[in-house]
Design a protein around this nucleic acid. Sequence first.
RNA 1: GCCGGGAUGGUGAAACAGGUAGACGCACGGGACUCAAAAUCCCGCGGGGGCAACCCCAUGGGGGUUCGAUUCCCCCUCCCGGCACCA
Length: 840
Amino acid sequence: MTSKYEPKKIETKWQRYWAEHQTFRVTEDPSKAKYYCLEMFPYPSGRIHMGHVRNYAIGDVVARYKKTRGYNVLHPMGWDAFGLPAENAAIDKGVHPVVWTYDNIAYMRDQLRKMGLSYDWDREVTTCDPAYYKWNQWFFLKMYEKGLAYKRRSSVNWCNSCETVLANEQVIDGQCWRCSSVVDQKELEQWFFKITEYAEELLAGCDRLTGWPERVLIMQRNWIGKSAGVEVDFPLAAGDGAIRIFTTRPDTLFGATFMSLAPEHPLVESLIRGTEAEAAVRALVERVKHQDRVIRTAEDVEKEGVCTGRYAINPLTQKKIPVWVANFVLMEYGTGAIMAVPAHDQRDFEFAKKYHLPMRVVIQNREETLSEGTMTAAYTDEGPLVNSGLFSGVPSPEAIEKIAGYIEQEGLGKRTVNYKIRDWGVSRQRYWGTPIPIIYCDRCGVVPVPEDALPVVLPRDVAFTGKGGSPLHQVQGFVKAHCPSCGGEARRETDTMDTFVDSSWYFLRYGSPKTDHLPFDKQAVSYWMNVDQYIGGIEHAVLHLLYARFFTKVIRDLGLIAVNEPFANLLTQGMVIKDGAKMSKSKGNVVDPDYLIGTYGADTARLFSLFAAPPEKDLDWSDRGVEGAFRFLSRVYRKVADLAPCLNPQLNLKVRGIHQYRNRLDEIGAGLPEDLKRLRKVVHQTIKKVSENIEVFHFNTAISFIMEMVNNIYLVPHEGRAGDEGFLYVMKESLDSLILLLSPFAPHITEEMWEMMGYESSVTGVPWPIYCTEIAQEEERLIVIQINGKVRSKITVPAGTPEEEIRRRALSDERITGLLGGKPPRKVFVVQEKLVNIVV
RNA sequence: GCCGGGAUGGUGAAACAGGUAGACGCACGGGACUCAAAAUCCCGCGGGGGCAACCCCAUGGGGGUUCGAUUCCCCCUCCCGGCACCA
C-alpha cells in the first residue's frame, strides 16, 4: 500500500509547482471583481512564531476561498523592516542592520513559503529599501508643504546612559528597558505630524467602519477623546490679563472657588516673580518637571499644590478666587489651567480638603440636601442649580447649554471642542529608520530636501557603539550638506522617522510595488483599494490602525487616491496561548513553527490553528490536538488513495469535472440504495454549511463539518461495489467535493489528492463546489415533543407537514398519551417543523 | 476607578431572530484486526439514581420575564484586555 500520507514530499512538490506556474500572480483586471486580502506584515525579527502562523493561515483561507469564488484576489506580503532590534543586533553582535535584516527576511520568506501561503511574491515590499522609504520622505515633504509636518520643542524620555530617546513603551517603571538607569525628561526639537487636524474626521469615520470590531472602534474613539465645552477667561484681580480655562461643565461655573495652573503654564513665571510665593512655587514646578511622565501620571501620586498668592475674578460671581499651581493639571490638555469646583469635581474636592480651600454647592441633590460642611465627596450627578444667580433652579443638563450661551453672549468666552489625541511625534534619534529629508542652513533656516534629490539614503558605513546618541550624528559625509536654497554649507537632519510611518501606507504600495515616479500607480491602486479584509493582532488597535487611517486621509487630500478609509473589514485574531500563558521565550512555552512543519507538515499546522478556536478568540495550543489534525488529514488521504484507483478507470472520468458527471448522477439519483442516497445528502448539506461558515469566518466549525462528512464517507461499505455505477459516482462526487472544501485550509494535500483523482490542473483554479438545494433538503423532520418544557418524546414527520397535523400527531403519540393520562392539555405550542410543547 | 470582552463536560469547543445543551476534536474506556504491539476501523463517553423502561440535576452564583432561557432583563463573584488625574 502506498497510501501513507507523507506531507514533506507532497508539500515541497506543490510549493515548487505553484512557484513554477506563478499560480498566485495577479494583475489588475477591470472585467473581474477584485478582492484585496491583507494580513499585517511582520517585523523581520529572525523567525516566524505561532502568532504569524495563525494570522497567515486565516488570511490564506480567505484569499484562497475568494479565488475559488471567482474574485481577482490580491494577496501580498512584505516586511516591516526598520526598527530597533536591528540596531541592537549591530551593537551587541557587530552585524550591520542591513545584513541582519536581509538575512532575517530571507529566512522568514522561506518559512512563509513552506507554509504554502498564496502570496503574489512579485509584489513583496520591504520598507528599509530606499525605493520604498524614498516615498516616506516624499510624503513628509508633502505634509511639510501643507503644514501637516512641523517642528517644535517637546519633552521626551531620555536615557543618559544610552544617550538616546526612548519611546513611552520602552520606559519600564521609570527606568530604561535596556540599561535600567533612571529615565529623564528632556526638551528636544521634534518633528510632528498634525494628526489632530484630522481628529474630527477620524472620529466621525468610526461610525462608518461597520466592518470593524466594535471594541477597536471604542478604543479609537476613546483615544481621540473628543469633549465639547467652553473656554472662559478669568481676569486677574490685579494687573492686566486673564487666565483662560477649558471646562465641560459650565453649569458649575458659579461654584469655582479657586483656580489651578499646570506647573508648565506660561503664566506661572510672571505671576510669582518677586512675590513671597516665588520660592515655594518654583520648588514645586522644578520637582514636577523632573518627574517622568510614567511616575507623574501614576495612580497613587498625591495631589499637591502651592498657592501663588495671586487672585483672579470668577466672571460669573465676580468674586476674588486664589490661583494655585497644582501637579495634577496637565499642560497638554485644554488650556493648561482649570477652574476648580470642589463641590462637584472629585479631584478639586480632594485638593480643597487638603489645603482648606472654600467650597460652594451649586447643584443640589434632590434626594438629600448637600451642604459644604458635611460633604465627604464631590457631587457629580445632575440636579437643579442653586447659588447660581439667574440660573438658580435650572436643571443642570439644561444649564450647561444656557450658561455656555450666556458666556458667549457676554463675551466672556466661547464654546470649543477638545481632543485627547496629540500630534504624532515622529522624530527618532536612531539609525535604522527613514532619514527625515530636512536640511538646516544658518542663513535660510529649515529647508526641505528638494523632491528630485530623494531619496536621502541612509549611509551604510556607520559605527554602532550604543553610545553618543544617533550614529548618524557622527557621519560627516551624511551630516554635511549644501543648502538647497542658497548653496551654502548646511547640516542635514540626523533624526529618522518613527517606523509606524512605514506601515501607514504599505498597503497602497502593494498595488504597484515597482512604480518609481510616484509612491504608487494611481490607476492600479484605485482598482485594488480598499483592502476588503485586513487581519492582524488586536495590539495595533490604536497605534498602527489609527496612523494608517490618518495617512490614507492625507494621501486622499493629496489627490492620489479616492478612498476615505484603508480597511473595509477588520479581523483581530486572538493570541496563541500555551499552558495558560501567551507564548514567549521567557516563559519557555514556545512552539517552533519549523519543528511543527518539519514533523507534521504545513497543512497540519494550518488546519490545527484554524480548527482549535474561532479566529478572534485566544487559541490554546495542544500538541495532542495537532496530532489529531494530522490524523484527520491522513484519514482523508487514505480514503482517496484507496478509492481513486478504482474510480478513475471505471468511470473514464479523467479530466471531466464535478459538474459534468453530476448530470448522470442526477439521472440515477432516485434509484440509489439508501446508504448512497444518505451520503449524497450529507455531501450537499456539507457544501452548504462549509460555505456559509467560511463566509462568516467560522473556520473551526467549517472544518468540523468536513470531518463529519469524512466520517460519513467511511461508514459506507465498499466491498464488492467496484462495478456499481451508482456507488462509483456517489463516491466520486463525495471525494471531489471533500477535496475542494478542504483546499483553502490544507492546500498541499488537496492538490495531491486532486491529482490522484485524475485531474490534470491545479485545484486552485477549480470553482468552489455548488450544492443542490433539493438534494440537501431533509425530507423528514424530527419533532421534539415536550410536556411543560421537558423533552418527553420525539417523532419524525415528512417535511412540509402542516402545523395542525403535527399537533395532532404529537398529542396522539403513545408516550405522550401515557404521560398525560387523559388530562386535557391547557395549551399547546407548535414551532413549525421543530417542536411541540404541551402545557398541562 | 472607567470602558470593553469572557466564564458551557476531564479538556479545546458547538449550539444564541429563545425551542432536543455539549456537534466536531482531544483525553479516556470497550470491541475488531494482530503471535503481540503500534497504526487502523467500529462503538461508548456531563453528573447522580435505577435490574430496566426511565427519572432527577446541570451552561460562574442569585433573582426575574416566558409555555420554554446557555441565549433576553436586573444584581453579584471571578478572569482577561484597553484607558487611566483629559478638567
